[in-house]
Simulated scan of single mutants.
Amino acid sequence: MQNDQGYRVFFIVPPEVHLLDVSGPIHVFYEATEYGADIESVFISINNDHSIKSSAGIGLNNLKPYSNHQLNQNDFIFIPGLDARLIFDEEFQKSMNPFFEWLQIQRNNGAKICSVCTGAYLLAFAGVMDDMECTTHWKYTDDFRKRFPKSKLHKDRLFVKDGSIYSSAGISSGIDLALYIIEELYGPFFATKIAKEIVVFLRRTEDDPQLSVFLQYRNHIENRIHKVQDHLAQHLSDKQKIDDLAVLVHMSPRNLTRLFKKTTGITIGEYHDKLRIERAMQLLANGQKVDAVSNLCGLSSNQLRSLLKKHSDILPSTLS
């Protein structure tokens, strides 16, 4: 996809923008230019104001009017998330109609359009998401489906590409999407260098779920179970016995087993397997050999293969 003309990335900055949604991808492309990529970043206002206030209260200035720019097939548009209060405000939606028309024109001109988090709503209001596969933040997927039935929403995807339309789940996934685009433009070796520069060593792909299992099953206030979950996650390479876990939290093995299932909805063994599967998938995707991965997951090679085969339905196509 590389060409002699270089690329432009237009970062739309709406009012009440979520800072990390926009600053994360910006930094990825900045580092890419530091490594020699021919990419120009342009910062434009969604309503032609030269300055806006972010959702965190920090102001962003020196923005250029969107209406001054006509894009082509070498251009990307990044639309970050913004405060939900604005998104669902009908007056705000109406005020955005000129921008939505401009967005459709740029799409017809061949520009690639990317959303981060709730930025997908702005694409959908503009009609860009009609009949397109997409995603958004997990908290808003049910609402998104109801509002935009023509879209083909994926509920648990990190990011989705459908033709010239890219969408990501939110916050850090905007970084993953930016790295994915860098890989498309300049190849995997170059993208890996950028990921290393910004200390994103375990790059995630579009096959990965929005929420890591290391973050799931933690929506409770039972400190003893949190302590067991922390221990399992931090000692994946060690053999774990229920008796030792019980001693860790001053409970009997039987009571711990019951409380864990009651609190999380799954057994300790199931949770432990989920941790191992996700860790193994990350390591294998990054080129680690099966023997090394199995050791890091506290399993033999045969045990790891059996575990992955048992759960092949959730593996990315590259690993299944």
Rank of each mutant, 00 (worst) to 15 (best):
H69A: 09
L179G: 02
I105S: 14
S67T: 11
A169H: 06
N62S: 13
I77F: 00
S95E: 07
F125S: 00
S320I: 09
D313R: 06
I221N: 15
D156N: 15
A280Y: 04
K94Y: 05
S168T: 13
S67I: 08
V213F: 06
R8I: 11
L158K: 11
H50P: 06
Q234T: 12
E31W: 04
N3A: 05
C134T: 07
H50A: 09
E197G: 11
D208F: 11
V228Q: 00
E278P: 03
E133G: 05
C117G: 00
S95Q: 09
L245G: 01
L19W: 02
N223H: 11
D243F: 15
N219Y: 13
C134S: 10
I268Q: 01
D89H: 01
S212R: 00
S172N: 05
G265A: 02
K274L: 12
P15C: 07
E270I: 13
G81C: 09
S294D: 14
A178E: 04
H250G: 06
A126C: 07
H311F: 07
T141S: 06
V116T: 07
V293Y: 01
S151H: 01
N62D: 14
H69I: 04
L158P: 00
Q210V: 12
K161C: 08
S55H: 01
L202W: 14
A178P: 06
F125D: 03
A32W: 00
F159Q: 08
S173D: 03
D83P: 01
F125L: 10
V13G: 04
E101P: 05
R157Q: 14
Q303G: 12
G287D: 02
A126L: 00
G81F: 05
W138E: 10
K262G: 04
F148L: 08
F43L: 10
S320G: 09
G170S: 06
A285L: 15
Y180R: 00
K310R: 14
H235D: 03
R305E: 13
R147H: 05
L256T: 02
K310L: 09
K239R: 09
L259R: 13
E91D: 13
V28D: 10
K94Q: 07
S168L: 05
N74Y: 09
N108H: 15
Y121L: 01
I46S: 13
V160K: 01
D313S: 08
V213D: 07
E184K: 11
K152Y: 11
